[in-house]
Design a binder for these strands. Structure first.
Lengths: 145, 145
DNA sequence: TATTGTTATACTCTATAACTATA
DNA sequence: TATAGTTATAGAGTATAACAATA
């Protein structure tokens, strides 16, 4: 067994390198943590409830709770009680939050584009499908224990 | 920008899920940490110096130092001073370490095989190349800052 | 009783750098 | 002076669970 060729190892190494390259944009330049960046990106799609943020970020409720608290302190998002269920909140970007997202997103997308330049159209298409298929199987493995 | 389709996010999510599925084997069942598992797998190729372990695991010198200390406490690896350079050490698996690796490796490889069953031969070939190409580019991005 | 979200706590990881011994 | 590896320390991230408010 060769660690260098072991798929889980290669995925971990690649994801780490890519994450560092992207984190450099939102962390060093804009003082956001990874979880805050994810919440910001999720809410850029439009206002949504905390539960929807959890579902669309793979963060858990504590991570979202803390990221939301910090983003709110910085006036990047706002929060209203959901009148239909007063335990829940609806989250939305403030104009400042939207402005920040609009500054970060192009930089992050430029880095993604740089990565993808390594691949031709056919390779991108296969990779796209492969990532989804592998994730489905990984979730099966996790559930099976 | 859609987070769900953003390559860095998808890689992070996939690598996390896969890592958890593999960690379940060496952690829960055999009480090894990720770094210890990597050092064990590296040394399964044969005895080598600490510096070579660092080069072949993407771990840094502290991570390797601690993993080595713990593996040595559990008598899974042995350590000799390199007589050519008495600052350096040569590390090698003990029989117990080799036996442990031989128990874990097939289980880990079975999980990798299960993941890869999702892909046909052509997809695997493309994925294999794509991961290497993307990693090369990610390292370029990191160095560029 | 169950669920949404918050808070507390302990634990692990990571990053930086100081340090020892050799070179 | 520089390098191999160790140790110290502080900060960040993670996991578990207890908790308050609402359903």
């Amino acid at each position: 067994m060769d660690l260098q060729r072991f798929l889980p190892y290669r995925l971990a190494v690649l994801a780490d390198a890519v994450s560092r390259a992207i984190a450099d944009v939102y962390q060093q330049r804009f003082d956001l943590g990874r979880d805050e960046w994810r919440v910001l990106a999720a809410l850029a799609q439009g206002p949504m409830k905390t539960a929807d943020v959890i579902a669309s970020t793979t963060l858990d409720k504590m991570q979202v709770s803390r990221a939301v608290a910090r983003l709110e302190q910085h006036a990047l998002i706002g929060r209203e009680t959901d009148e239909a269920d007063r335990r829940a909140h609806v989250l939305r970007l403030t104009p400042a939050g939207r402005a920040l997202f609009r500054r970060i997103a192009p930089l992050a997308q430029a880095r993604e584009a740089f990565l993808l330049e390594a691949l031709d159209a056919d390779e991108r298409r296969v990779l796209d499908r492969a990532l989804d298929k592998l994730r489905d199987r990984a979730l099966l493995l996790e559930r099976a224990g």
